[in-house]
């Protein structure tokens, strides 16, 4: 085992220990915080595939996060008013079932990622950042002006959606559900990084000429990575909406894109557990410093600056040392 995998194991242990302690002492608020960490980490795991493996600095992942959230909001709001989404040519009704909502969220966000990626991946560098940002902002303003689902005010869902065999209203059950989804995403992401696709994608990040010269088209690799990345972030959006039982255009705003990117950078770009460490640190700081000052993000900003200047590998990178090439 490498040092990094010990650190990952330790982090996993902590992330299980804290909610266990909170559960046994009956602190529901801490459980909710842990759930939030898991869901935001999931969004980061998505971005980390594009940003960490592919080197694609997407500043528009809020688009997918928001699409996932609105997939949940639209389906659940129609279900709670018993008003079908459409009745012609085929009847489509809302649903309160999480698996169905997740499926819709994943499909919708991957389609959006396919479209956005197909256009924006023709550019690179600063233009890519700007185009992805523009797509995110487009959806943000669109939802603000979309009265059917609350417009600027957003939309509340009164009862959390259901999952077969679970009572999702019990905080610890929803927490376990979120942890399992995050765990599966991490597992998938770990395998992806070591698979042929991961090798070619990380090679394209380092040197696109090299990849072309061995007969692999970098554009296709990046597009597929972008779609996988967007769909995982979309799934996180659906879960996040369910955690808050609320959706609003804020999910689409560039602040959200920035925050997802902050999780990845704080934790360690391209590190498997980077987004987990980053999201945990972010929520921890919000929880600890948010009580001290309303302006806690000043400290976050200073920390981010320190990471970018002095600890490029983020939290995981600093603890684990330089990435060892995986054999």
């Amino acid at each position: 085992m490498t040092r990094e995998s010990y650190i990952n194991a330790g982090l996993t242990f902590l992330l299980v220990l804290v909610p266990f302690w909170a559960w046994s002492t009956g602190q529901a608020y801490i459980l909710t915080l842990c759930t939030k960490v898991a869901i935001l980490a999931l969004a980061g795991v998505g971005l980390n595939i594009a940003l960490g493996l592919g080197g694609l600095v997407s500043f528009g992942h809020a688009a997918f996060f928001g699409i996932g959230g609105y997939a949940m909001g639209i389906l659940a709001s129609h279900a709670q008013t018993f008003d079908p989404i459409m009745d012609w040519p085929i009847l489509i009704e809302g649903t309160k079932s999480m698996p169905v909502i997740w499926l819709v969220a994943v499909v919708a966000s991957s389609l959006a990622a396919l479209l956005i990626g197909a256009l924006s991946l023709r550019t690179s560098g600063v233009y890519f950042i700007m185009i992805t940002l523009a797509f995110g902002q487009m959806l943000y303003y669109f939802t603000i002006g979309w009265p059917a689902y609350g417009g600027e005010d957003g939309l509340s869902i009164y009862v959390r959606n259901s999952f077969p065999g679970l009572n999702t209203l019990v905080p610890v059950q929803f927490l376990i559900l979120s942890y399992v989804v995050l765990g599966l995403a991490l597992l998938f992401s770990a395998r992806l990084a070591r698979a042929p696709f991961g090798l070619a994608l990380t090679a394209a990040r380092q040197n696109a000429d090299r990849v072309e010269t061995v007969g692999i088209a970098p554009y296709r690799l990046r597009l597929v990575a972008f779609v996988i990345s967007g769909s995982i972030t979309g799934l996180a959006g659906a879960l996040f909406a369910d955690l808050n039982r609320f959706i609003s255009p804020t999910m689409f705003s560039w602040h959200t894109s920035g925050e997802i990117m902050i999780f990845v950078i704080l934790g360690g770009v391209g590190r498997l557990y980077g987004p987990v460490a980053g999201a945990a640190l972010f929520i921890l700081l919000e929880h600890l410093l948010g009580g001290v000052s309303e302006y806690w993000k000043i400290f976050l900003g200073a920390l981010l600056l320190a990471v970018v200047l002095f600890a490029r590998g983020g939290l995981i990178g600093t603890l684990a040392g330089r990435e060892v090439a995986h054999g």
Partner: peptide, 22 residues
Amino acid sequence: QNAVLGALGARGGVMRFFRPVM
């Protein structure tokens, strides 16, 4: 890894997501 990348390009099957390439 660089050499394996070449071999991968020659063989094809780059869109595989689960089996460790190394």
